[in-house]
C-alpha cells in the first residue's frame, strides 16, 4: 500500500481506516516534515466538527480520583500500553533520534552551503538585497537549491543539482509564511531550471520560514497543497550583509 497517494493515507489515518503500520509511517513522516504535519493537522481539523456532535456526558464522581491515582504509577497501564499503545500512536522518541542524526549530518552541508550562499550573494551584486536565504537539502543532506526571498516576496530559486523529475511531473516551490498556517505555493519550475518567482499577498519572508520543493502533477498540485515527494527543503536565515 506504499504507493497510495499521501492525501488518501492522511485521510484514512484520520478516519480510523488505516492499519497500525500506515499510522506509524505517517506519524514518522509528520515528525520529520512540518509540511506533512500541517497537512495532517488540516485533515484532523476537517473532521473535528464530528467530535463536537457527540453527547457531552457527565463524568462519574470518582473519575478524576481514578485518573490521578494512575499518574505516578507506571504499572497499571504499562502492560496494555506496551503492546496496544505502541501500535496506536508512534513512539516519537525513536523518530526524534533519527531526525537528530539526520540533522547532524545535514548541518555540515548547511554550513558549507551558507558559505557558498554568501559568495554567490556578493558576486551577483543583487540589485535588491535578500530578506532571507534558504538552502534546500534533499534527504541525503545534499544541497539541491538555493532560495533567496526578497522583501517584496520575489523569490529567486537557483537549482544546484539536476533533478530527475518524471516527464509528466513538475517541480513546485512552497513556503510556510506562518508556522501554524498551511503551506503556500510560490510557483512552478516548469522548465526544470532556475528562475525567479513572484507572488502577491504574502507577508515579507522571515528567518526560520520553511521552503520546500516537491514533485507535482503537470500544472501543479491539484489540491494546492504539496502532494508529491519532497525533493528538498530548508529553513530560511537572514543573510549577514
Amino acid at each position: 500500500m506504499t504507493d497510495r497517494p499521501l492525501d488518501i493515507l492522511i485521510d484514512e489515518c484520520v478516519l480510523g481506516l488505516a492499519g497500525d503500520d500506515d499510522i506509524a509511517r505517517l506519524e514518522a513522516m509528520a515528525a520529520s516534515d512540518p509540511m506533512i504535519a500541517a497537512r495532517l493537522d488540516i485533515a484532523r481539523q476537517k473532521f473535528a466538527p464530528l467530535d463536537a456532535t457527540a453527547d457531552d456526558m457527565p463524568l462519574p464522581d470518582d473519575f478524576w480520583v481514578r485518573i490521578d491515582a494512575r499518574l505516578d504509577g507506571q504499572s497499571d497501564m504499562d502492560a496494555p500500553v506496551a503492546t496496544a499503545d505502541r501500535a496506536e500512536v508512534v513512539d516519537l522518541n525513536a523518530v526524534r533520534t533519527q531526525a537528530a542524526r539526520w540533522r547532524v549530518s545535514a548541518l555540515g552541508g548547511i554550513a558549507a552551503a551558507l558559505v557558498m550562499t554568501m559568495v554567490l550573494a556578493w558576486s551577483f551584486m543583487l540589485p535588491q538585497e535578500q530578506a532571507v536565504v534558504a538552502v534546500l537539502l534533499n534527504d541525503r543532506g545534499e544541497a539541491i537549491a538555493l532560495v533567496e526571498g526578497m522583501p517584496d516576496n520575489t523569490t529567486r530559486v537557483t537549482l544546484l543539482e539536476t533533478q530527475n523529475v518524471p516527464q509528466d511531473k513538475v517541480m513546485q516551490v512552497w513556503t510556510k509564511p506562518e508556522d501554524d498556517g498551511p503551506p503556500v505555493s510560490l510557483g512552478l519550475l516548469d522548465t526544470g531550471r532556475s528562475r525567479t518567482l513572484t507572488i502577491d499577498g504574502l507577508p515579507s519572508p522571515n528567518a526560520q520560514q520553511l521552503y520546500e520543493i516537491t514533485s507535482e502533477p503537470e500544472g501543479g498540485s491539484p489540491t494546492n497543497l504539496p502532494t508529491g515527494p519532497i525533493l528538498g527543503k530548508g529553513f530560511a536565515k537572514e543573510p549577514l550583509i
Binding site: A30, P34, A37, L40, D41, R44, Q45, A48, V89, D180
Partner: peptide, 11 residues
C-alpha cells in the same frame, strides 16, 4: 507548531 491541542487530545 505541529497541530491544534484539541486535535492532539482527540487523536
Amino acid at each position: 507548531d505541529r497541530g491544534s491541542a484539541s486535535g492532539w487530545v482527540y487523536t
